[in-house]
C-alpha cells in the first residue's frame, strides 16, 4: 500500500542524502532518465553504496533501472539488487519484458542469497502496453503499475496537457486492471513543480477515478499527495459508523441491517473495512 512514490536522481549525492526525510511511502532511486548516458556507471555505484550505508531506511526502496532495450540494465541489476531494496521499476514495460525481468531477478536472488523476493512496478508508457495491461498486471512480482504519461503522449503523438484528456483512457484502463487484481494503480507525476494548486486538482481527479497512489518528481509534492490519497474525514466517520452498526447487528444476529435509511450488506461492509484499514495504516485514526 502506497500513497506517494518519490523519484530521486540516482547520481545526486545531495538529494540521496536527504531522500528519507520527505515522508514518501516509497522512494524511487532513478538510474534511467535522471542520469546521463555517460554517468550510468557512477549512478549505480552511488546508489548501491548509499543503500549499503543506510541500513534501515523508513520507506520502500524502489530502483528504476534502465530499459531492457539498453546496454545498462543488466549492470544496474547486478549492482543494486540486494536485501536493502524492495522493488525494481521497469521503464517501457511490456509483457515479454516483465517475464524476462522475473527470470533475471530470480537468478540474481539465488546467486546473492537474498532473503526476500523483489517486487516489480512496470511503467506503462507505450500504447502497446496500455493494450496489454491485463496481461501485465498478472505478471509475476508485479504489485503496482505506474502510468508514464509523458512518454505515452510521445508514443501517441499527442500534446500532453495539464487537464489530461489525452491520457484519460490510459488512466481508466490502468485503474480498472489494477483494481481487478488488487494491486496499486500509480498515477503519472504532475510535472509543473511550482503549481501546487494544479497538483492538488490533479491528485483529486486521480482519486476520483480510482487511483490508489501517485508518483512525485519533487519532494515538495509529497505532502499534497499524502494528504489526498487517503480516505477523507467524512469517509472515515462513515466507515466507523458502519463498523459499529455491523458489530451491533452481529450481536443481534442480523445478516442485513440499515444505516441512515440505507441497506448495509456485505460489499458495503467490505468497503468500510478497506477505508478503515487505510486510515489506520496512515495513522488517521
Amino acid at each position: 500500500m502506497r500513497r506517494s512514490l518519490l523519484f530521486m536522481p540516482g547520481n545526486n549525492p545531495a538529494m540521496l542524502q536527504n531522500s528519507d526525510v520527505f515522508e514518501a511511502d516509497a522512494v524511487i532511486y532513478d538510474l534511467e532518465d535522471a542520469v546521463s548516458v555517460t554517468e550510468k556507471d557512477s549512478a549505480r555505484k552511488l546508489v548501491a553504496e548509499f543503500l549499503r550505508f543506510n541500513k534501515s531506511l523508513p520507506m520502500e526502496v524502489v530502483i528504476r533501472i534502465n530499459g531492457l532495450d539498453t546496454d545498462f540494465y543488466s549492470s544496474d541489476l547486478e549492482y543494486v539488487v540486494s536485501d536493502r531494496i524492495d522493488t525494481i521499476m521497469l521503464p517501457k514495460a511490456d509483457h515479454d519484458g516483465l517475464l524476462q525481468l522475473d527470470k533475471l531477478l530470480t537468478k540474481i536472488e539465488q546467486e546473492k542469497g537474498l532473503t526476500k523476493k523483489i517486487k516489480v512496478i512496470p511503467i506503462i508508457e507505450l500504447a502497446k502496453s496500455v493494450l496489454e495491461i491485463e496481461k501485465i498486471v498478472t505478471c509475476p512480482r508485479v504489485d503496482g503499475v505506474l502510468l508514464g504519461a509523458e512518454d505515452l503522449s510521445s508514443d501517441l503523438d499527442v500534446i500532453r496537457t495539464k487537464k489530461g484528456d489525452e491520457i484519460l483512457y490510459a488512466r481508466q484502463r490502468l485503474v480498472m486492471a489494477c483494481s481487478a487484481y488488487k494491486i496499486d494503480s500509480i498515477d503519472t507525476p504532475f510535472t509543473d513543480t511550482n503549481d501546487n494548486d494544479g497538483l492538488k486538482t490533479d491528485c483529486e481527479f486521480a482519486v476520483s477515478i480510482g487511483f490508489t497512489s501517485k508518483s512525485a518528481i519533487h519532494p515538495n509534492q509529497v505532502t499534497t499527495i499524502n494528504k489526498t490519497f487517503v480516505p477523507t474525514k467524512e469517509k472515515i466517520e462513515w466507515a466507523l459508523r458502519v463498523e459499529a452498526a455491523n458489530a451491533e447487528a452481529l450481536k443481534k444476529g442480523l445478516g442485513v441491517f440499515s444505516l441512515d435509511g440505507k441497506m448495509v450488506d456485505k460489499p458495503v461492509i467490505e468497503r468500510a473495512n478497506k477505508i478503515l484499514k487505510k486510515a489506520k495504516a496512515y495513522k488517521l485514526i
Binding site: N18, V21, F22, E23, H218, P219, N220
Partner: peptide
Amino acid sequence: TKDPVGLK
C-alpha cells in the same frame, strides 16, 4: 524557501 528540507 523552496528547499524541501527547509519546508520539512
